[in-house]
Design a protein around this nucleic acid. Sequence first.
DNA 1: CAAAGTTGTTATCCACTGATAACTAAGTAC
DNA 2: GTACTTAGTTATCAGTGGATAACAACTTTG
Lengths: 185, 185
Amino acid sequence: MTRIRLTAQERHAQLVAAAVSAFAKGGYAGTTTDQVARLAGVSQPYVIRLFGSKQELFLATVGHAADRVRQIWLAAAAKNPTLHGLGMAYKELLAERDLLVVLLHGYAAAADPALGEAVRRCYGELYLLVRELTGASAEEARDFFASGMLITVLGAMQVLGPDAVAPQPWMTDLLGTLPYGKQNP
Amino acid sequence: MTRIRLTAQERHAQLVAAAVSAFAKGGYAGTTTDQVARLAGVSQPYVIRLFGSKQELFLATVGHAADRVRQIWLAAAAKNPTLHGLGMAYKELLAERDLLVVLLHGYAAAADPALGEAVRRCYGELYLLVRELTGASAEEARDFFASGMLITVLGAMQVLGPDAVAPQPWMTDLLGTLPYGKQNP
DNA sequence: CAAAGTTGTTATCCACTGATAACTAAGTAC
DNA sequence: GTACTTAGTTATCAGTGGATAACAACTTTG
């Protein structure tokens, strides 16, 4: 069996992608570095060697998720620089639902001082970005992020998104009112 | 040293209270049954004996948090059966911030099938309760829960609540717009 | 008070997990 | 082709955490 060698950069990126998926289920403490390693097809010690520690792997993962959200919002703002324009992008974000969920796991893990500081910084940057891109007022931005958080949590609960469970009455009731268009086919 | 013996019921309640505090930091996977045990002043194996497993302890904890939220909302609705009335109760909920945060950790752990089903049921019940108590429309209820989720996550991130970190500019900006009154002294 | 039930403890186990060390093999430069 | 660097492995370890079992102490009942 011939091994495929990648550059450290490529492997790094591949591992972060795997980590997004793994940490999205499981969260920080509930996911092993071995699970991430297997997803990417490398050995567990190599993951540690590339990232130094599990914590730094998680930080890189959360940072990447925030970057992707930024990218998607920037692209959306290029077409329609309003909150509604960015809101429509939640369709794309829910398609890559793990991005949102891994961010949520970051927020939830903020009790750890090292993680907390990084995660608050990410969130603050996203908040400021939205206000810059759209010129929204603080109130409008707050409502936007509140809706986003609800969507994120519903995604984590598998009420919304690719692997949603069979809908209950209250779910259809709640989801029917979601702004920015319906999400599920 | 004389040991204080409680009835199993009393110890059960005390352990759930300790578990709320412990799981609020740390989450499901990030908290050990020994941490909960020490908080309550008993041995770790006894916690397992009383609850059967860590998972059942967590489920009992989430269930208790949901019950407390229900109680607080019921009391609030008795005075003012509107969304604004319930919203004002977020002040009390933030005072017992761990309640909200432990619920959040429940939502985040919903990828585990056993936990997920229970957690979705809790959330659905709370949603229906709010609509019953207030007669709010689906849209109004959705906005209410979206705001609540934002408050919860900000609590978990220590942007809001008892142990909030030193505020950043974006935080004061965002918090200044929170509905239902200012939260911090 | 003896027997039975309740409330706990200590001792112990085993699986798991992050991390380290030492080694291997594939490119790359000269 | 030989020396060097880069990408990866296997072997291993030390600590931890949930769970089980056996025992101890207190309370109640007859």
